[in-house]
Design a protein around this nucleic acid. Structure first.
Length: 830
DNA sequence: GCGATCAGCT
DNA sequence: CACAGCTGATCGC
């Protein structure tokens, strides 16, 4: 059944010697791997002075339709045509290997949240210590220092460009009823409908490395924190240090200064106070009850009765009114009906909220801090907003807030309030200085921001500056639009929120921590990669963070966000958050990555893919099969036909075989690149196939412990670098030969050859060879770029779009505006 | 000195 | 180019 995979021969053998290939079957653990037997002999003869050709002759991607088939190029033919195998290529059955048919990794359900610590002086960066350990060096060398002087510039990945929804050419798909999958009327399923679905075919059944553990527990064993390397880690320092709570100062002061504008634009002094910050559904119910008690609440823009909406949904409603600009569009009303907004309606003419909802700002504030249990104490002690600001830690202790955590939290927040009060004064002075000309170009803020300012604060602001009336008059003509910020953006936080970070019809944001605002209290994090959680710090106080169990563990471990700020989202199970149905699916990107389905009351479901790699299992998911997606926020990282890289299995197989070909030489060191999280599957499968341990650093192990590997899988990792010649290292250490040489020097005594694997989809881009790997060599260092991608290939993107058949597609990567957006969408629909 | 942020780089 | 992230400079406290 097994056939020789001779591809790697060409790496090490002179052409003249590759003519004859003997075959043998090598048994390793559960796998049979077959290699040309001449390989070992020839390679041994040639080492260490390798003189290999540039190209690789490797098994091509297994055909999707027949994963058992590998296309193997002739040893004497440069495999430059991966995508279009030449007729001369042999098509042989794939060796019986678990890789292709193996069940993906299962999570280790009982994994204890790790408590990694590492000495600060050892390394200040995750992964950097790897090299130090690897090299057993006694000197502190830094691979990042001055190794490469020529550094090309790079644009930021995501430009915070606001893309108007309208500018994204809506794509209308034919709704197919094929296999009952997509029906025009299959909209907005009820809870019971979903209960009837066969979830057995959902992603629950997909075994994966990125499965979530349910029931996340807080780091339970405090003792573990204090032991060994875990104690002094950067993570520990993050956890232990006190963070400042400054980041909202500017926003707060702005909100309060601009609050007057809105109130005056409304032409009334009435107070509206909506609970916009709580993530607690009970609280929203309370808010609603209060509203009803006092009467109607209308949208200040369109005048619709929004009394029946929750505070959150009122925000959504009014934001959408603002977003609609002059284009008549649907607006969510209290009855979830669709109404037409009056074009050009200005605030001056807008009906204002008629009644006031009084809720103690102190109670509100406590709830926002996640400390509702102290409400009773504060009410009993008759602490009002002003008194609150003068409370000291001793005061808190004396009234019964004895627990250290909450007390500190309250003290920090009070300090912040004091600062805000001071800044409000400054802000008010600033407003008085704005000339009408300035005001016309003033930056904006959501009208809904005004709903969340505590009544007492608003009163204060209202009572002051008459000059604001001037500003209001100037602004009113454009007041139905978002006004520009009054000062140039200092940071991303004050920039416009990209369209792919907001979920239309909901008050939710996804991966939008760079754009923290007070108008949102539901922050979704699709996965734990820097470009998605950037802006999230341990001083985060803008509401609740929603993410997978694995992501929550990492957020807690690496950033220090307390568990009570996070809510773990279940997989394949619909839950209700702030009145909106939310269902999560595994994204097949990195461990813990999620695709999130939002089903707002307006019936326009939004599917946010986060970063994802489409796989066939997704098409078998009953919920995705039946739900009509209105907007698809899509990971368009590789939205270009040139990125048609192979399946992960094929690349894994290539790496396994490449390593296998060399393991006879005990003086070969294999390095596999990895991100903080990501690429785990590659080195786990290598370990499994070769039945060898892989060396990881303590820091990396602490992360791996979060990822839900089984006990069996965890045993593939070792902290003893002597125990394995396969080492997992940060990707950046493999970025250049210069760095690799540095590593090689550290290993000079033990290893005569370094073979590094850099797994990334970019190795398949323009000007790259279309193969499962490109091989580069300098002396005794061999560097493979293997197109192991955790994003969807272009083909997969097209398949996914076809499967989902959305009305709108919103590209979330490389989206620099309407032009690039529609170009990507067009490519996907071609 | 520390944390947060950003630009510049691979 | 960009994946994801490292590094040093700077700022504010």
């Amino acid at each position: 059944m097994s056939f020789c995979s001779c591809s790697f021969l060409s790496h090490f053998c002179p052409f003249s010697l590759i003519g004859v290939i003997f075959k043998f079957t090598l048994k390793l653990g559960p796998h049979k791997l077959n290699f040309g037997c001449s390989l070992h002999l020839l390679s041994a003869l040639l080492l260490p002075n390798l003189n290999a050709p540039e190209s690789l002759f490797l098994p091509s991607m297994a055909s999707p339709s027949n994963p058992k088939t590998l296309s193997i190029s002739s040893a004497l033919t440069d495999d430059d045509d991966f995508q279009d195998p030449s007729p001369s290529q042999l098509h042989l059955p794939k060796p019986t290997s678990k890789i292709a048919s193996r069940k993906p990794l299962r999570p280790y359900k009982n994994a204890t949240p790790p408590t990694s610590k590492k000495p600060k002086q050892y390394s200040s960066h995750v992964g950097k210590e790897n090299i130090a350990v690897v090299g057993k060096c006694t000197v502190d060398f830094d691979l990042g220092h001055g190794l490469d002087s020529s550094r090309p510039t790079k644009k930021p990945k995501q430009h915070p460009v606001s893309v108007e929804k309208d500018s994204l050419a809506p794509v209308v798909f034919e709704k197919s009823d094929e296999n009952g999958k997509r029906l025009n009327s299959a909209h907005h399923k009820s809870e019971s409908d979903f209960e009837d679905l066969d979830l057995g075919h959902g992603l629950d059944n997909i075994e994966s490395t990125i499965d979530c553990c349910s029931g996340v527990k807080r780091a339970t064993n405090e003792e573990e924190l204090k032991r060994g390397y875990l104690f002094k880690s950067i993570e520990a320092r993050l956890l232990n240090s006190n963070g400042g709570l400054e980041e909202r100062k500017e926003e707060e002061s702005e909100e309060c200064s601009e609050l007057d504008l809105l109130l005056k634009l409304c032409g009334e002094e009435d107070e509206v106070y909506c609970d916009a910050l709580t993530a607690d559904p009970h609280r929203q119910e309370e808010c609603l009850e209060l509203d009803e008690e006092y009467g109607l609440i209308c949208c200040p823009l369109c005048g619709a009765d929004i009394s029946d909406l929750s505070g959150e949904m009122r925000l959504v409603h009014t934001n959408e009114c603002l977003d609609k600009d002059e284009t008549p569009a649907d607006v969510v009303t209290a009855n979830n009906d669709v109404s037409i907004q009056c074009p050009g309606q200005v605030l001056n003419d807008s009906p204002c909220p008629k009644e006031v909802v009084h809720m103690s700002p102190v109670v509100e504030w406590l709830r926002n801090l996640g400390l509702p249990k102290y409400e009773e104490i504060f009410v009993r002690e008759e602490i009002d907003w002003d008194t609150l600001k003068s409370l000291t830690e001793e005061d808190l202790f004396s009234i019964g807030v004895t627990a250290l955590g909450p007390r500190k939290k309250i003290v920090n927040s009070i300090l912040e309030l004091r600062k805000e009060t001071a800044e409000e004064k400054v802000a008010r002075q600033d407003v008085t200085k704005i000339t009408p000309a300035d005001a016309g170009t003033r930056p904006s803020k959501l009208i809904t921001d005004y709903f969340i300012c505590p009544v007492s604060e608003r009163k204060k602001v209202c009572a002051t500056d008459k000059a604001q009336m001037e500003v209001q008059r100037t602004c009113s003509s454009a007041s139905h639009k978002r006004i520009q910020k009054k000062t140039p953006a200092k940071s991303a936080k004050s920039k416009d929120i990209p369209v792919w970070c907001s979920i239309p019809g909901t008050p939710f944001r996804v991966d939008a921590f760079k754009y923290l605002r007070r108008d949102c209290s539901h922050w979704f994090l699709s996965h734990f990669h820097l470009d998605h959680y950037q802006g999230l710090t341990k001083s985060f106080c803008h509401g609740k963070i929603y993410c997978s169990s694995i992501t929550a563990k990492l957020v807690n471990l690496k950033i220090g966000i307390p568990w009570d700020m996070m809510q773990v989202l279940p997989i394949n199970q619909k839950i209700n958050i702030a009145g909106i149905d939310v269902t999560c699916f595994e994204a097949n990107h990195c461990p813990g990555s999620l695709i999130i389905l939002f089903e707002p009351a307006n019936g326009k479901a939004v599917l946010h893919t986060g970063d994802f790699r489409f796989c066939e299992e997704m098409t078998r998911n009953a919920i995705l099969q039946t739900c009509c997606i209105h907007s698809l926020i899509l990971d368009t990282t590789y939205c270009d036909p040139q990125y048609d890289f192979p399946k992960q299995e094929a690349v894994i197989q290539f790496v396994i075989e490449s390593i296998q070909a060399e393991t006879f030489n005990s003086k070969t060191l294999f390095l596999i690149g990895s991100y903080t999280i990501g690429k785990e599957r590659l080195f786990v499968e290598v370990a499994r196939a070769l039945q060898k341990k892989v060396y990881v650093t303590a820091s990396k192990l602490s992360i791996l412990e979060c990822l839900g590997f089984t006990r069996e899988e965890m045993q593939f990792f070792t902290l003893n670098e002597q125990e394995s010649q396969i080492h997992v290292v940060p990707m950046w250490t493999l970025a250049s030969f210069k760095r690799l040489k540095y590593v090689a020097n550290q290993y000079a005594r033990r290893y005569s050859l370094i073979v590094a694997f850099s797994p990334t989809g970019w190795s398949f881009g323009k000007g790259k060879k279309k193969s499962t790997g490109s091989r580069w060599q300098q002396g005794t260092i061999i560097r493979y770029e293997v197109p192991y991608s955790e994003h969807s290939s272009f083909t997969e993107l097209k398949e996914f779009v076809k499967f989902v058949s959305p009305v709108n597609i919103i590209p979330s990567v490389n989206n620099r505006g309407p032009e690039s957006s529609s170009a990507m969408v067009s490519r996907l629909l071609d």
